[in-house]
Structure formats: structure tokens, C-alpha cells
Amino acid sequence: MITEEALQEAQEKFKALRGELGKVIVGHREVIEQVLICLLCQGHVLLEGVPGLGKTLLVRTLARALGLEFSRIQFTPDLMPADITGTLLLMEDEAGRRHFEFSPGPIFAHLVLADEINRATPKTQSALLEAMQERSVTVGNETYQLEEPFIVLATENPIEMEGTYPLPEAQVDRFFFKVKLSNPGLDELEEIIVRNTAQAPYSPRQVLSREEVLAARELVAAFPVPSQLYRYASALVHATHPDSELAPTAVREYVEYGASPRAGLSLISGAKAHAFLSGEVNVRLEDLQAVFYPSLNHRIILNFKGEAAGITPEEVLAEVWKKVDINALR
């Protein structure tokens, strides 16, 4: 039963969570919000940013504030799938009988940080992505369910592409959001330095339990959405395809492939979570707008002309947002 009190309590707790994260992470409010949206929508996050921007710190702080298990996997070219999923070990009991016992890998956690995911081979990446999609791991003949909430936060370094294995587009599509971390501003940088040198690092306290996170997920999923917004989200996704009648010129010229239907799901689910985090009880157009870029920017594949012209997916999406008029939709 959803009541006003239950809703307000959940929203207050998430507000407190954001406050707690803000005590550790300087700036990056949008990033924190988008990570929380992914948490509420059972989605995985692809964090893109240069080293040292606090990606790991963000994930670790989030895990602590939620009281969830956290694991980190540093992806390297020699990382094997078993290093992620776990493996069967030959064990010997007290009677001297040998048997295989499954040793869970680091994927068996609530929050998994897949650091520099593009440095692992495609085979290893696939092992992770399968777990992300199916929320289970199969080793040998056994399938092991991953405990909810399960969220992978993968990072990518956009400047060191040498010796990397870029993620296949189909696998990138499985990330709910792609969140870009930018360099901190002057004030933020100063604050980071002060916090880490002049005083003892803040240790975040737990403000939410696992059960509360799951309850909030259920609540968010039930958020009502006006039919016009369903239509609008569909139109936005459709307009990213070059052959769509809604597509703006930028899409027709620079886009090879548009966003998949998963983008639409991300838009609506993300908008629900954004509305929840904003203290609303239903989805608004502003919620859709807030999740538009992180939902779609990694799902747009530019063509050669677009790449050569230095066009970014964000620029294309800006044109899409301008072109598609919600009032013109029927």
C-alpha cells in the first residue's frame, strides 16, 4: 500500500543519502543523482571520465551509505572471466574426499565497480555483461543468482585508448546510463584539496538499508506517467534514427544507427526515478528532459562523417530535443 507517509519517508531518506554522498564527493551532483536513478531503476552505469575524478570514491561511498556489499574489479587485458564470476575449486573435506566448490567472484556484490572495463578482452567483458543482463552467473552446470540490488558501475578512460578493447555497441546498449564526469571547477577543486589534506576524511554513515532500496524501487516503478510522455519518449527515440520522419538534419547527416528500444525504457524509468528524487508523485516533462542525455548519448552511433566532423552525440541529441515538439504529437 502506497501512502503519503511512506512515499515522503522514502523520498526523505534518499534526500539524506544524497546529502551523505555530498559530504564525501565534492560537486558531481548530477552524477550522484544519475547513479541513484540507476540504483532505483535496476540499471547499470557507464562512467566516463579521466582518472582521479572520484569514480571509485563515489561507488564506495554509495555502498557504505546504503549498507551494501561493494566490490571492485580492475580490468586488465589478462583478466579472465572466472576472475569476475568466480570459479570451481577442487576442495578436500576432512574425510579426504575431493569435490568442486564454487568460489564466488567479485561480481557477487551489490555494487560492483568495473574499473577501466575497456582494458579487458571482449571475452571477459562478455562475462560481466552477461551477469549484468541476466543478473545471474552460470559456472559449470550451476546458475547462481545475483542478489538484488545489483548494479555495475563501469568506468572508461576516454583519453587512453591504446591497448584497450572498446565495448561492442550491443554491450554498451545494456548500460542504463552513460554518465560523463567532468573536471571539477576551481572552488570544487579547492574543496577537494581541503577535505583530503586539512582534515580527516569523512566516513559516511549508512542512511538506507537494502530493503528500503528495494521498496523504493517498487515505489518508483509504480509512478504514474501521462500518456503524452510515453508518446514523447517514443518520438524522441524514434527521431534518433536517420530514416525517421521526425529526425532532424543532424541525425540524418551524422548518425549511422539510432537508439534502441532500451533507450525508451531508460527514458521512462529514469524519468520516474528522477520524479521520485525530486519529491514528486508523478512523472513530468522536466523529469524526461533530465534523463534524456544520459539515457541516449551512448546509444547513438555516429557515421564516418559525424566522427570526421567531430560531432558529439550530445550535439545530435540537442537537435533531436529541439526538433521533436511534444505539442505537435498526436
Binding site: M1, I2, A222, P224, S227, Q228, N282
Partner: peptide, 19 residues
């Protein structure tokens, strides 16, 4: 904030009536 249209959807049975 799209409350009227959300309410309309709920009265049409598209969503949970608790909202």
C-alpha cells in the same frame, strides 16, 4: 506538473490507484 494528466491515466486504470 502533469498532475491532471497523470490523474487522468490513473482514473483510466493505467497505474496504481493508490497514487
Amino acid at each position: 506538473h502533469e498532475r491532471l494528466s497523470s490523474l487522468y491515466e490513473l482514473y483510466r486504470g493505467r497505474g496504481r490507484a493508490e497514487f
